[in-house]
């Protein structure tokens, strides 16, 4: 097995996303991590200077928030669905609700519809208080083998 296949296998078996994130350069660059809590994936975007989008406020970049929402949604599919292929993102809509402060951010995804070809996921990202998300997203993923 390749590194990525092994990391994927380890994540689906143990719910530990360390190897998976280490195998994907862009997730490593952002600092994204995954763990499974209470049966669902909890995504983590640590605060890093390189994730700042507005140095005057300061606030995190919308792209970094979008990336952790998308990555957490994919991880939730890998963890909780029977789909054996890596989901391909069809589209992603992010609502930016609040300015994301320069602190750690957390994310989770909920599968709203698991179709034969497409999975719909709602995801949200928050900082201190899960009831006050800084951003939410809806995304569609294709889960058909090539």
């Amino acid at each position: 097995m390749t590194d990525v296949a092994q990391a994927l296998h380890a994540f689906r078996r143990d719910g530990d996303g360390t190897a998976l994130c280490a195998a994907v350069p862009f997730l490593t660059f952002l600092g994204v991590g995954f763990a499974v809590r209470e049966g669902h994936v909890l995504g983590h975007l640590p605060f890093r200077d390189t994730n700042v989008g507005n140095p005057a406020l300061p606030a995190l970049h919308g792209g970094a928030l979008g990336a952790v929402l998308e990555a957490t949604a994919i991880a939730e599919i890998l963890w909780s669905s029977e789909a054996l292929v890596i989901p391909k993102t069809i589209n992603l809509t992010v609502d930016y609700l609040r300015s994301a402060r320069p602190v750690d951010t957390w994310a989770r995804g909920i599968i709203t519809k698991h179709g034969r070809r497409v999975i719909n996921v709602r995801a949200e990202a928050w900082q201190d208080d899960p009831s006050e998300p800084v951003a939410t997203a809806t995304a569609h993923f294709l889960v058909l083998a090539d």
Binding site: F26, G63, A64, E70, A71, V94
Partner: peptide, 24 residues
């Protein structure tokens, strides 16, 4: 650039990078 890669097998950049580029 290598640090933007989402799929280490193909070298294709991560979708999140495109999100950041389009947002900016």
């Amino acid at each position: 650039a290598p640090h933007l890669v989402g799929n280490p097998h193909t070298g294709v950049i991560h979708g999140g990078v495109i999100t950041a580029l389009i947002d900016a």
